[in-house]
Write a protein that binds this DNA or RNA. Structure first.
Lengths: 192, 192, 192, 192
DNA sequence: AATGAATGAGGTTTCATTCAT
DNA sequence: AATGAATGAAACCTCATTCAT
């Protein structure tokens, strides 16, 4: 098995790096459009490369999905760090972070499906990214809790768990289902 | 297209009825064990019948899943009607119903996956069962709301939506994920 | 293997005989409509009996087809015997027989397909009927040949062969294909 | 839908072209040996490739059969063009063409079956090839007719039709069936 | 004798992954 | 490093035939 590019063993050639991006973006697009059953061939076509190239960059379909998930988690983390740098009423800042990340999620709900389908495996494949997300999040929560604006018994893991629930609503189109509403229920519940 | 048994055109022969049950039970078991990608052949083997028999009863994999889902919804509805007949503090009765139904869910979380995977389609295939569930549930909620123990703006559809979130936690095994905890958060949300 | 009804081992009960007819007629109809890939279930449904009943009467799909073919050959033979009894110019009488039998054929061209698909097997399954057909046909041909109106080198087998060709045109819908025209060519071939 | 090779979108890679040939040849062989019910797996095995490869080249069994038929028609056409270039008594040249093409046919009579089974569809899938065949054939016939050696009322379409009849004899093994004899009847009939 | 449910070998097709070019 | 053709293990589904009722 060859060294995967994502492990950054050595700096990539410029064109390889460009392909890497195009594949990831293509994957995001086709999974968003056709769901997880989209085929690697579709990803390749969308990315404008051959299947072989996809496999050179990601040894397996699961690995590709995994990277998409990790990317998303990195965006979440980035947003969290930004929130941390922001001035303002702590609970409001935190609530806005949840709203913002939810918007990121909904952009391609299929990745959400991936997150679910992966189930237990995800924590293994995104350990690092999860921690990078949890660190600033925990700090934001601590601030809000110290200010007496957030339930003191809620933990970062609870947030992941509850937000997974909100994501589930995104992929579901039940009668009267509305993830914005779901999210506001969650935020309300966290308050005080 | 052949008449599917589920349409109850005519009373089934004794052996057919028995097989129908065995198939459904077998399906529940293999989906619980191997997830949704379990194959019809596996279902057949587990049920102790030939593949053809499975296809005679359920023309397609989706139809089989659909029936499993409907069955589950019927159990939910049954529990709701029982709760309605029960004496006691309205909110507590309702909360217990949620807890009880959640336990039913977790028995075979894979069906939950099906519920998710179905997404938008489910409401079409389980219209009737959903209504049978919603009727008593709405009545229970109205009681709790009249007693001032439940948020007055919550609707039955909200309950479905929030419980789907809880189900998502069942299928996910994140760090610190605990659906009991998720459920209690939800119950808290609904209070007053 | 059970005794097939077609072998007339013992007189059939009235209802069995009726079913036998209905099955044969149903088979003729569905094979004519859907071609040879029509299923035994279709035959049974059309005949208004269960599959099991079809199998009681005909041990196999091929046997059913075989009987249909034999029936057709019996009609041909019947027509040939009638022609033999008729007065008139020998070649004309013979040509009319061919035209008449061709009309019988076209009624359900699918049986023709069966005749073709069977290929080499048919002569084994319809030996008797073929002879019953060939006897009067040979006599008719001899008359025409004695009268100097038909090529003297043509044999009964040639007629079967040439008429199979005409049948092929019936099942084929090529551009400009017209079995009436094909048949008249054949009749011309035979003349003097 | 993937681009089928037969559409000649771009020059095939050397190995793909080789496989294309091998598949076609394998198909010809197994259909000749086992008839039309030969399976794609058999074709693949005979060609020494995987099933997937067969499906990459021909999206469906019918497509594969179709190409075989078209190939055969191209050989017929090629022979017709050669005959056109030949010196000699026009009717004799034409008769020899029929004999030659009949020999091509008999090489793998199963394709003939395909031709029949296709029935009405064939003209749609082989329009071009049919015209390529009909053009020189019509010219050869015109010559013979102008020379007063061929019946003036026969058309190219009649030839197709009559030759289909001869082909039927090839696939049938009735008692006394002999396609050479059938063909000579046809040729005789066309004379003058 | 009739019924139709059950059977399961067999058929077509898909698609993640490998490998020759 | 890139390409896309090749692979073949599955997956789904059909249907001639058997067998319990």
């Amino acid at each position: 098995m060859t060294t995967t590019v994502t492990e950054h063993r050595r700096p990539l050639r410029a064109d390889a790096r460009r392909n890497h991006e195009r594949i990831l973006e293509g994957a995001r697009a086709v999974f968003a459009e056709y769901g997880l059953e989209a085929q690697i061939d579709d990803v390749a076509r969308r990315a404008g490369v051959g299947v072989g190239t996809v496999y050179r960059h990601f040894p397996t379909k699961e690995a590709l999905l995994g990277e998409l998930v990790r990317r998303k988690l990195r965006v979440f983390a980035e947003n969290a760090r930004e929130a941390l740098a922001r001035e303002g009423e702590p609970f409001g800042v935190f609530a806005d972070l949840l709203r913002r990340n939810a918007e990121v999620c909904v952009a391609d709900a299929a990745i959400q499906h991936a997150l679910m389908a992966f189930g237990q495996h995800i924590s293994m494949h995104a350990q690092v990214e999860l921690e990078e997300l949890n660190k600033p999040t925990a700090e934001l929560m601590a601030r809000a809790q110290r200010a007496g604006a957030m339930r003191p018994d809620v933990t970062v893991d609870d947030i992941s768990m509850l937000m997974c629930g909100v994501s589930a609503t995104m992929t579901q189109t039940g009668p009267g289902f509305d993830w914005h509403r779901h999210l506001e229920f969650v935020i309300d519940m966290l308050r005080r």
